[in-house]
Design a protein around this nucleic acid. Structure first.
Lengths: 138, 138
DNA sequence: TCATTAATGCACTTCCATTGCATTTGTTTT
DNA sequence: AAAACAAATGCAATGGAAGTGCATTAATGA
């Protein structure tokens, strides 16, 4: 079991106090978070730092970006088996219309999608909307 | 074959010069357009008018909104068989990473997606990215 | 024609994403 | 350990898109 420090170093990310905190924050959350969510959790720190930290994490393959259709970019930790940087990542996101939370359903693979002749599919973004397990019992 | 005037009236949309022009513009384009696209095509007109026109069209079921992951909302005419206002519309969009165009692949239905127990799916947004027929022959 | 209602245009506002630059902090080298 | 370097942070500002309030203009209906 790697420490967070080791994990960051293995991805060529310099270890700083802020980055450790943000990483821990992402681990604790099991849902995708917005930049504002992080901002609210770390009011002492500047928005730019948080923004650039998450961008660094993204470039180095620690988090991936999610567009769940709310218009606000969300981020979630890449899990074991998350091949978000690889073509044809068929990984599904669920957005709850009630609590507004978005989760990665990594286990739920999507069947291969057919596209018309001449079209080349590289990557698929699938967002299912509805009510999550916490909100479905109205 | 209905005229555009008749079509608009049948949807309870008042016919104005601007609306006719925007409708024709959407027909001519076979791809989804952004508000800026429309704005560039009608520089004489105000952005707000174009914005509200497209919103009116959307409310009345003439166009539907597409979120193709570029961060900019796009709009396309609803075709025969487009049930975008109905739950579980499983209609697929393709976004070309080269020419940046997005098209509706109405004919390509998506298989039913399974979600975990306790989750209720209401609606699905599926965007396939890659290269379109015009751009795939690099 | 007059009155009513809707459409248009202008000016703002808000929100999120992003960048430039100066400063601070952390490494590395001598 | 000090100097030199590089990267991280914080502040200020920008840009783009979405959306709203209000006055004006145009269209409909009595």
């Amino acid at each position: 079991m790697k420490t967070i420090e080791e994990l960051l170093e293995s991805k060529n990310i310099r270890v700083t106090a802020m980055r450790l905190l943000i990483y821990k924050f992402l681990v604790e959350k099991d849902v995708a978070v917005t930049l504002s969510d992080i901002e609210n959790a770390f009011e002492k720190s500047d928005r730019t730092t948080l923004y650039r930290t998450i961008k660094t994490f993204e470039e180095k393959g620690i988090v991936h970006q999610i567009d769940d259709g709310t218009g606000i970019t969300k981020y979630a930790l890449c899990e074991k088996g998350c091949n978000c940087e690889i073509e044809n990542d068929l990984h599904l996101h669920f957005h709850c219309n009630n609590c507004n939370e978005t989760v990665c359903l990594t286990a739920h693979k999507i069947p291969q999608i057919k596209v018309p002749d001449g079209f080349v599919a590289e990557n698929v973004n699938l967002v299912v909307k509805g009510f999550c397990d916490k909100c479905s019992g109205h």
